[in-house]
Design a protein around this nucleic acid. Structure first.
Lengths: 151, 151
DNA sequence: TCCCTGTCGATGCAATTGCATCTATATGGA
DNA sequence: TCCATATAGATGCAATTGCATCGACAGGGA
Protein backbone atom coordinates (compact mmCIF):
# COMPACT_ATOMS: atom_id res chain seq x y z
CA UNK A 1 0.00 0.00 0.00
CA UNK A 2 1.21 3.42 -0.97
CA UNK A 3 2.18 5.97 1.64
CA UNK A 4 0.31 9.22 1.38
CA UNK A 5 0.98 12.66 2.66
CA UNK A 6 -1.82 14.64 4.24
CA UNK A 7 -2.71 18.08 2.97
CA UNK A 8 -2.04 21.10 5.15
CA UNK A 9 -5.79 21.46 5.63
CA UNK A 10 -6.05 17.87 6.79
CA UNK A 11 -3.20 18.34 9.24
CA UNK A 12 -4.71 21.52 10.64
CA UNK A 13 -8.13 19.96 11.05
CA UNK A 14 -6.63 16.87 12.65
CA UNK A 15 -4.64 18.90 15.15
CA UNK A 16 -7.67 20.94 16.12
CA UNK A 17 -9.87 17.91 16.40
CA UNK A 18 -7.54 15.98 18.66
CA UNK A 19 -6.64 18.92 20.80
CA UNK A 20 -10.11 20.34 21.23
CA UNK A 21 -11.73 17.03 22.03
CA UNK A 22 -9.11 16.32 24.64
CA UNK A 23 -9.66 19.70 26.23
CA UNK A 24 -13.41 19.29 26.31
CA UNK A 25 -13.28 15.83 27.80
CA UNK A 26 -10.66 16.83 30.31
CA UNK A 27 -12.67 19.80 31.50
CA UNK A 28 -15.71 17.64 31.87
CA UNK A 29 -13.81 15.00 33.80
CA UNK A 30 -12.44 17.69 36.06
CA UNK A 31 -15.92 19.02 36.70
CA UNK A 32 -17.12 15.54 37.61
CA UNK A 33 -14.19 14.95 39.88
CA UNK A 34 -14.76 18.30 41.55
CA UNK A 35 -18.31 17.20 42.28
CA UNK A 36 -17.14 13.89 43.66
CA UNK A 37 -18.78 11.98 40.83
CA UNK A 38 -17.46 9.05 38.83
CA UNK A 39 -15.97 9.44 35.39
CA UNK A 40 -17.52 9.59 31.95
CA UNK A 41 -16.83 5.91 31.40
CA UNK A 42 -19.22 5.11 34.22
CA UNK A 43 -21.77 7.44 32.72
CA UNK A 44 -21.49 5.78 29.34
CA UNK A 45 -22.26 2.38 30.79
CA UNK A 46 -25.15 3.65 32.91
CA UNK A 47 -26.50 5.50 29.90
CA UNK A 48 -26.44 2.46 27.64
CA UNK A 49 -28.01 0.29 30.30
CA UNK A 50 -30.71 2.85 30.99
CA UNK A 51 -31.50 2.95 27.28
CA UNK A 52 -31.58 -0.82 27.15
CA UNK A 53 -34.30 -0.97 29.81
CA UNK A 54 -35.28 -3.92 31.93
CA UNK A 55 -33.85 -6.47 29.55
CA UNK A 56 -30.38 -5.19 30.22
CA UNK A 57 -27.42 -5.87 28.00
CA UNK A 58 -24.82 -8.55 27.63
CA UNK A 59 -21.29 -7.28 28.29
CA UNK A 60 -20.28 -7.95 24.71
CA UNK A 61 -23.10 -5.71 23.51
CA UNK A 62 -21.79 -3.00 25.76
CA UNK A 63 -18.36 -3.39 24.20
CA UNK A 64 -19.87 -2.65 20.81
CA UNK A 65 -21.57 0.50 22.06
CA UNK A 66 -18.90 2.11 24.17
CA UNK A 67 -15.42 2.22 22.77
CA UNK A 68 -13.59 0.07 25.30
CA UNK A 69 -11.56 -3.13 25.38
CA UNK A 70 -13.13 -6.31 26.67
CA UNK A 71 -11.06 -6.38 29.82
CA UNK A 72 -11.83 -2.72 30.52
CA UNK A 73 -15.53 -3.42 30.38
CA UNK A 74 -15.14 -6.48 32.55
CA UNK A 75 -13.44 -4.47 35.25
CA UNK A 76 -15.68 -1.45 34.86
CA UNK A 77 -18.72 -3.65 35.39
CA UNK A 78 -17.13 -5.22 38.45
CA UNK A 79 -16.72 -1.77 39.98
CA UNK A 80 -20.20 -0.64 39.06
CA UNK A 81 -21.56 -3.78 40.63
CA UNK A 82 -19.58 -3.26 43.81
CA UNK A 83 -21.10 0.19 44.05
CA UNK A 84 -24.57 -1.26 43.56
CA UNK A 85 -25.19 0.70 40.37
CA UNK A 86 -25.72 -2.36 38.22
CA UNK A 87 -26.58 -6.00 38.79
CA UNK A 88 -25.44 -9.06 36.92
CA UNK A 89 -27.92 -11.79 36.13
CA UNK A 90 -27.18 -15.21 34.75
CA UNK A 91 -28.62 -15.74 31.33
CA UNK A 92 -30.62 -18.91 30.79
CA UNK A 93 -29.66 -19.86 27.28
CA UNK A 94 -25.92 -19.26 27.52
CA UNK A 95 -24.08 -20.52 30.54
CA UNK A 96 -20.99 -18.47 29.71
CA UNK A 97 -22.73 -15.17 29.76
CA UNK A 98 -24.59 -12.78 31.94
CA UNK A 99 -26.99 -9.92 31.57
CA UNK A 100 -26.19 -6.60 33.09
CA UNK A 101 -28.98 -4.36 34.28
CA UNK A 102 -29.00 -0.92 35.82
CA UNK A 103 -30.35 -0.62 39.36
CA UNK A 104 -32.42 2.15 40.87
CA UNK A 105 -29.38 3.72 42.45
CA UNK A 106 -27.64 3.37 39.10
CA UNK A 107 -30.37 5.47 37.54
CA UNK A 108 -30.06 7.98 40.32
CA UNK A 109 -26.30 8.17 39.82
CA UNK A 110 -26.80 8.63 36.12
CA UNK A 111 -29.02 11.62 36.80
CA UNK A 112 -26.47 13.13 39.12
CA UNK A 113 -23.68 12.71 36.63
CA UNK A 114 -25.80 14.15 33.87
CA UNK A 115 -26.46 17.30 35.87
CA UNK A 116 -22.75 18.06 35.64
CA UNK A 117 -22.03 16.45 32.29
CA UNK A 118 -24.91 18.16 30.54
CA UNK A 119 -23.97 21.51 31.97
CA UNK A 120 -20.44 20.99 30.71
CA UNK A 121 -21.71 20.22 27.23
CA UNK A 122 -23.91 23.28 27.29
CA UNK A 123 -21.03 25.45 28.45
CA UNK A 124 -18.51 24.13 26.05
CA UNK A 125 -20.58 23.52 22.95
CA UNK A 126 -24.06 24.97 23.14
CA UNK A 127 -22.89 28.37 24.23
CA UNK A 128 -20.25 28.67 21.56
CA UNK A 129 -21.88 27.50 18.36
CA UNK A 130 -25.33 28.09 16.93
CA UNK A 131 -27.68 25.20 16.38
CA UNK A 132 -26.92 25.42 12.69
CA UNK A 133 -23.18 25.33 13.24
CA UNK A 134 -23.56 22.40 15.59
CA UNK A 135 -25.42 20.52 12.89
CA UNK A 136 -22.73 21.32 10.37
CA UNK A 137 -20.06 20.17 12.78
CA UNK A 138 -21.84 16.91 13.53
CA UNK A 139 -22.33 16.29 9.86
CA UNK A 140 -18.68 16.86 8.99
CA UNK A 141 -17.59 14.64 11.85
CA UNK A 142 -20.03 12.02 10.71
CA UNK A 143 -18.14 11.73 7.47
CA UNK A 144 -14.99 10.86 9.38
CA UNK A 145 -16.51 7.91 11.14
CA UNK A 146 -15.08 4.56 10.44
CA UNK A 147 -17.33 2.93 7.85
CA UNK A 148 -16.55 -0.49 9.34
CA UNK A 149 -17.97 0.48 12.72
CA UNK A 150 -21.67 0.46 13.54
CA UNK A 151 -21.92 3.87 15.15
CA UNK B 1 -23.89 29.31 39.07
CA UNK B 2 -26.95 28.12 37.24
CA UNK B 3 -27.12 24.64 35.79
CA UNK B 4 -27.84 24.56 32.10
CA UNK B 5 -29.18 21.90 29.81
CA UNK B 6 -27.55 21.33 26.46
CA UNK B 7 -29.59 21.45 23.28
CA UNK B 8 -30.12 18.25 21.31
CA UNK B 9 -27.81 19.65 18.64
CA UNK B 10 -25.10 20.26 21.22
CA UNK B 11 -25.46 16.74 22.57
CA UNK B 12 -25.30 15.21 19.11
CA UNK B 13 -22.25 17.23 18.13
CA UNK B 14 -20.54 16.39 21.42
CA UNK B 15 -21.16 12.69 21.03
CA UNK B 16 -19.81 12.69 17.50
CA UNK B 17 -16.81 14.73 18.44
CA UNK B 18 -15.75 12.57 21.34
CA UNK B 19 -16.43 9.32 19.57
CA UNK B 20 -14.84 10.20 16.26
CA UNK B 21 -11.72 11.68 17.74
CA UNK B 22 -11.21 8.60 19.88
CA UNK B 23 -11.61 6.37 16.88
CA UNK B 24 -9.18 8.35 14.81
CA UNK B 25 -6.54 8.47 17.51
CA UNK B 26 -6.98 4.81 18.32
CA UNK B 27 -6.55 3.77 14.71
CA UNK B 28 -3.45 5.86 14.45
CA UNK B 29 -2.00 4.42 17.64
CA UNK B 30 -2.73 0.95 16.34
CA UNK B 31 -0.95 1.69 13.09
CA UNK B 32 2.08 2.96 14.99
CA UNK B 33 2.11 -0.07 17.24
CA UNK B 34 1.83 -2.35 14.24
CA UNK B 35 4.92 -0.68 12.80
CA UNK B 36 6.79 -1.06 16.07
CA UNK B 37 6.91 2.68 16.57
CA UNK B 38 6.33 4.69 19.75
CA UNK B 39 3.07 6.44 20.51
CA UNK B 40 1.72 9.81 19.49
CA UNK B 41 2.84 11.31 22.80
CA UNK B 42 6.43 10.67 21.79
CA UNK B 43 5.78 12.22 18.43
CA UNK B 44 4.31 15.31 20.00
CA UNK B 45 7.39 15.89 22.09
CA UNK B 46 9.77 15.24 19.22
CA UNK B 47 7.73 17.52 17.01
CA UNK B 48 7.78 20.40 19.47
CA UNK B 49 11.47 19.99 20.08
CA UNK B 50 12.21 19.84 16.37
CA UNK B 51 10.26 23.06 15.90
CA UNK B 52 12.10 24.66 18.78
CA UNK B 53 15.46 24.06 17.12
CA UNK B 54 18.89 24.09 18.71
CA UNK B 55 17.79 26.19 21.64
CA UNK B 56 15.54 23.40 22.81
CA UNK B 57 12.75 23.86 25.29
CA UNK B 58 12.30 23.87 29.01
CA UNK B 59 10.05 21.08 30.26
CA UNK B 60 7.48 23.58 31.49
CA UNK B 61 7.28 25.06 28.01
CA UNK B 62 6.58 21.60 26.68
CA UNK B 63 3.77 21.21 29.20
CA UNK B 64 2.14 24.32 27.75
CA UNK B 65 2.35 22.99 24.23
CA UNK B 66 1.34 19.40 24.61
CA UNK B 67 -1.66 18.69 26.79
CA UNK B 68 -0.05 16.61 29.52
CA UNK B 69 0.42 16.75 33.26
CA UNK B 70 3.74 17.80 34.69
CA UNK B 71 4.58 14.35 35.97
CA UNK B 72 3.66 12.79 32.65
CA UNK B 73 6.08 15.04 30.85
CA UNK B 74 8.77 14.36 33.41
CA UNK B 75 8.49 10.62 32.85
CA UNK B 76 8.04 10.90 29.11
CA UNK B 77 11.24 12.89 28.87
CA UNK B 78 13.06 10.33 31.00
CA UNK B 79 12.07 7.60 28.56
CA UNK B 80 12.94 9.64 25.51
CA UNK B 81 16.31 10.35 27.03
CA UNK B 82 16.91 6.68 27.79
CA UNK B 83 16.24 5.96 24.14
CA UNK B 84 18.68 8.65 23.09
CA UNK B 85 16.02 10.65 21.27
CA UNK B 86 16.49 13.77 23.36
CA UNK B 87 19.16 15.19 25.60
CA UNK B 88 18.84 17.23 28.76
CA UNK B 89 21.16 20.15 29.32
CA UNK B 90 21.56 22.18 32.48
CA UNK B 91 20.48 25.75 32.06
CA UNK B 92 22.88 28.41 33.26
CA UNK B 93 20.55 31.03 34.67
CA UNK B 94 18.21 28.71 36.54
CA UNK B 95 19.68 26.00 38.69
CA UNK B 96 16.34 24.22 39.06
CA UNK B 97 15.75 23.75 35.39
CA UNK B 98 17.05 22.07 32.32
CA UNK B 99 16.79 22.47 28.62
CA UNK B 100 15.63 19.60 26.50
CA UNK B 101 16.91 19.21 22.96
CA UNK B 102 16.16 16.72 20.24
CA UNK B 103 19.05 14.56 19.05
CA UNK B 104 19.85 13.39 15.54
CA UNK B 105 18.30 10.02 16.21
CA UNK B 106 15.33 11.84 17.69
CA UNK B 107 14.87 13.63 14.38
CA UNK B 108 15.17 10.37 12.56
CA UNK B 109 12.56 8.76 14.80
CA UNK B 110 10.28 11.71 14.23
CA UNK B 111 10.50 11.15 10.49
CA UNK B 112 9.74 7.48 10.86
CA UNK B 113 6.73 8.14 13.04
CA UNK B 114 5.49 10.79 10.65
CA UNK B 115 5.55 8.36 7.74
CA UNK B 116 2.86 6.36 9.52
CA UNK B 117 1.12 9.21 11.31
CA UNK B 118 0.84 11.36 8.22
CA UNK B 119 -0.52 8.49 6.19
CA UNK B 120 -3.10 7.88 8.87
CA UNK B 121 -4.19 11.51 8.78
CA UNK B 122 -4.40 11.40 5.00
CA UNK B 123 -6.45 8.22 5.13
CA UNK B 124 -8.79 9.29 7.82
CA UNK B 125 -9.23 12.97 7.07
CA UNK B 126 -7.81 14.04 3.76
CA UNK B 127 -9.52 11.30 1.82
CA UNK B 128 -12.91 11.91 3.36
CA UNK B 129 -13.39 15.66 3.34
CA UNK B 130 -12.60 18.28 0.74
CA UNK B 131 -10.10 21.01 1.51
CA UNK B 132 -12.99 23.39 1.93
CA UNK B 133 -14.78 21.11 4.36
CA UNK B 134 -11.59 20.61 6.31
CA UNK B 135 -11.27 24.35 6.67
CA UNK B 136 -14.84 24.63 7.84
CA UNK B 137 -14.28 21.85 10.34
CA UNK B 138 -11.12 23.43 11.69
CA UNK B 139 -12.85 26.76 11.99
CA UNK B 140 -15.81 25.36 13.90
CA UNK B 141 -13.52 23.44 16.21
CA UNK B 142 -11.50 26.56 16.73
CA UNK B 143 -14.50 28.22 18.26
CA UNK B 144 -14.70 25.48 20.86
CA UNK B 145 -11.21 26.02 22.12
CA UNK B 146 -10.82 27.12 25.66
CA UNK B 147 -10.30 30.89 25.55
CA UNK B 148 -8.09 30.68 28.65
CA UNK B 149 -5.61 28.41 26.88
CA UNK B 150 -2.93 29.67 24.54
CA UNK B 151 -3.46 27.22 21.71
C1' DT C 1 21.54 38.44 55.19
C1' DC C 2 17.62 35.68 56.35
C1' DC C 3 13.11 34.12 55.73
C1' DC C 4 9.02 33.23 53.28
C1' DT C 5 6.77 31.99 49.35
C1' DG C 6 6.71 30.37 44.63
C1' DT C 7 8.29 27.56 40.75
C1' DC C 8 10.84 23.62 38.54
C1' DG C 9 11.14 19.00 38.02
C1' DA C 10 11.37 14.23 40.14
C1' DT C 11 9.43 10.37 42.63
C1' DG C 12 7.06 6.89 46.25
C1' DC C 13 3.09 4.63 46.36
C1' DA C 14 -1.42 3.14 45.21
C1' DA C 15 -4.70 2.57 41.52
C1' DT C 16 -5.45 1.61 36.80
C1' DT C 17 -4.35 -0.26 32.32
C1' DG C 18 -2.67 -3.39 28.70
C1' DC C 19 -1.37 -7.78 27.36
C1' DA C 20 -1.66 -12.37 27.37
C1' DT C 21 -3.88 -16.12 28.92
C1' DC C 22 -7.24 -18.79 31.48
C1' DT C 23 -11.67 -21.17 32.55
C1' DA C 24 -16.07 -22.35 31.18
C1' DT C 25 -19.48 -23.02 27.96
C1' DA C 26 -21.21 -23.33 23.13
C1' DT C 27 -21.26 -25.03 18.44
C1' DG C 28 -20.47 -27.80 14.52
C1' DG C 29 -18.61 -31.72 12.25
C1' DA C 30 -16.89 -36.60 11.98
C1' DT D 1 -20.94 -39.14 21.13
C1' DC D 2 -16.53 -37.05 20.90
C1' DC D 3 -13.40 -33.76 19.57
C1' DA D 4 -11.81 -29.41 17.62
C1' DT D 5 -12.62 -24.79 17.46
C1' DA D 6 -14.91 -20.53 18.77
C1' DT D 7 -16.91 -17.26 22.01
C1' DA D 8 -17.98 -15.04 26.78
C1' DG D 9 -15.95 -13.10 30.39
C1' DA D 10 -12.28 -12.96 34.18
C1' DT D 11 -7.62 -12.38 35.81
C1' DG D 12 -2.18 -12.63 36.86
C1' DC D 13 1.35 -9.84 36.07
C1' DA D 14 4.01 -6.09 34.35
C1' DA D 15 3.84 -1.39 32.82
C1' DT D 16 1.77 2.99 33.17
C1' DT D 17 -0.77 6.62 35.43
C1' DG D 18 -2.52 9.78 39.02
C1' DC D 19 -1.95 11.87 43.27
C1' DA D 20 0.51 13.80 46.61
C1' DT D 21 4.65 15.32 48.05
C1' DC D 22 9.48 16.17 48.01
C1' DG D 23 14.01 18.48 47.33
C1' DA D 24 16.26 22.11 45.14
C1' DC D 25 16.64 26.57 43.71
C1' DA D 26 14.69 31.50 42.70
C1' DG D 27 13.01 35.94 44.04
C1' DG D 28 11.44 39.40 46.97
C1' DG D 29 10.79 41.80 51.29
C1' DA D 30 12.36 42.99 56.06
Amino acid sequence: MKKKSPSPEAIAAWARLVRVSRQLVERTEDALKASGLPSLAWYDVLHELAEAGEGGLRPFELIDRILLAQYSVSRLLARLEMDGLIEKLPVSDDGRGQTVRITASGREMRRRIWAVYGASIADQMGDRLSAQDLKTLASLLGRLRDPTISD
